[in-house]
């Protein structure tokens, strides 16, 4: 069986479904990668999502790592091409016709209608990660601290807060076996 083609197929589907960006497609990504295909377990998915948070650029570049876990570097390439080519080609084509609809009132309706849908999908993405990532008092405290930092202090680099969360975990959890795969 060709797993590379499965990776290409799954991420191409997710690419087309990613209306509203990466966070919106996060629950479906987890559903397919963990639930349907069993490429990763819950903890691995949470860890790889975390890796996406500490690098610059779009967080969803983490799909590369998911592909790598399935079939190595070829899988990484398949996941990248699958996730970015269909949506990218669509944007490229659509931007060339979009301006013809300048002034169409439906364009505004589309943007207004999709905005709350996207917020709902982002909330669901947060819930989907929280179900695995929030496990014990310390994780709740870290999550609240970062929430307050990002929401209240506008001029903070979010990647530093995420790395700070990692350091707190390293300092306080490494003796507890937290996050270790079941042996």
């Amino acid at each position: 069986m060709n797993e590379n083609l499965s990776v290409l197929g799954v991420f191409s589907l997710l690419s087309i479904l990613a209306v509203g960006g990466g966070a919106a497609v996060l629950p479906e990504t987890k559903e397919l990668v963990v639930g349907t295909y069993h490429w990763l377990n819950d903890d691995q998915f949470r860890d790889i999502y975390g890796l996406g948070q500490v690098v610059p650029g779009p967080n969803m570049l983490m799909v590369i790592v998911i592909g790598y876990h399935v079939t190595g570097f070829m899988g990484a390439l398949m996941a990248f091409v699958g996730f970015f080519l269909p949506a990218g080609a669509l944007s490229w084509a659509a931007s060339r016709v979009w301006d013809h609809f300048e002034g169409s009132p439906w364009r505004r309706s589309l943007q207004q209608g999709l905005a709350p849908l996207v917020v709902g999908l982002m909330a669901s993405g947060t819930i989907s990660i929280a179900r695995t990532a929030i496990d014990g008092t310390l994780t709740v405290i870290i999550a609240f601290a970062v929430f307050a930092g990002v929401y209240c202090v506008k001029k903070v680099n979010p990647a530093l807060l995420v790395l700070g969360g990692g350091l707190v975990g390293l300092a306080l959890l490494s003796g507890t076996g937290a996050g270790m795969p079941p042996s």
């Binding site: 966070a23 982002m122 929030i134 969360g165 990692g166 975990g169 390293l170 306080l172 959890l173």
Partner: peptide
């Protein structure tokens, strides 16, 4: 693993803030 547990929890905080 302990570091990534911390990163994952921090990511939840950040995602909630950005969503809000």
């Amino acid at each position: 693993n302990a570091t990534l547990v911390g990163v994952g929890a921090a990511a939840v905080g950040m995602l909630s803030a950005v969503t809000l």
